[in-house]
């Protein structure tokens, strides 16, 4: 308890600033996901039509992800300058592997019988996607988005170093000023943000599964929300 008092008082004193940076952090994530989801899902759907293209594209998204983020920022700065543009660009790149891969696997795991029945009852290719493949793939895609968000929360924090703002700002400042309270409190807030988003998106994924009629083990929150909806 003794140990935590200075952290608590730091948190209380700087609450407004921490809150503002958290909001900024979430905004960066939202913008990045807003761009990454349509791109990733479209690519995932398109490559589901061709297996060979699919493995190449997924391999490429995997390669993109191995590039260290600081190095990637470094590569992007000469082109996009500093601030949020290079960071958002990098976040979109990093999120492609989980989104593209999960969209692709989600769609390819739909049983052939299901798509064929859709075809047999007169669905066009678009309608098959809309009524059969995408709804069935949605929970898997959601799991990919969840993965992507976790990665993005972390990389966005590093993005503060090149001026994108967010909670990373206070962490870098803390390291520079050797302010332990600042470091500990901000990293805890950042980690809680990641955990909350992970949990929240996990619940959304479970709700989608329940909506699709799957039998799953439900988290408490999922159970509560589901019993209200259903």
């Amino acid at each position: 308890m003794q140990l935590s008092v200075p952290y608590v008082s730091f948190f209380v004193e700087r609450f407004d600033e921490i809150l503002a940076l958290t909001v900024e952090h979430v905004e960066i994530i939202a913008v990045a996901m807003g761009l990454a989801i349509p791109i990733g899902v479209t690519v995932g759907v398109l490559i589901s039509f061709n297996e060979r293209v699919a493995s190449t594209v997924i391999w490429l998204t995997g390669i993109m992800m191995t590039i260290p983020s600081i190095a990637l920022f470094g590569l992007l700065i000469p082109v996009l300058g500093i601030g949020s543009p290079p960071v958002i660009f990098a976040l979109v790149m990093y999120s492609q592997l989980p989104i593209v891969r999960n969209t692709y696997t989600g769609i390819s795991q739909v049983a052939d019988a299901q798509t064929e029945v859709g075809e047999g009852m007169g669905m066009t290719r678009k309608q098959r996607l809309r009524y059969v493949q995408l709804p069935i793939a949605l929970p898997v895609i959601m799991a990919g988005l969840r993965n992507a968000v976790i990665i993005i929360v972390g990389v966005a924090a590093i993005g503060a170093f090149i001026g994108a703002g967010g909670l990373g700002d206070l962490i870098f400042k803390g390291i520079r000023l050797q302010n332990m309270n600042m470091i500990v409190v901000t990293t805890v807030v950042l980690s809680l943000l990641a955990l909350t988003l992970d949990y929240g998106l996990g619940v959304v994924e479970q709700l989608l599964r329940l909506h699709n009629g799957e039998e799953i083990e439900r988290a408490k929150l999922t159970h509560a929300i589901w019993s209200v909806i259903a």
């Binding site: 976790i150 972390g154 924090a157 500990v184």
Partner: peptide, 17 residues
């Protein structure tokens, strides 16, 4: 699973103090 979601910058910054 919890640890998996903690950003790398947070881990590195936390080691420092």
């Amino acid at each position: 699973n919890v640890f998996h979601t903690i950003p790398p910058l947070a881990v590195i910054a936390l080691v420092f103090p």
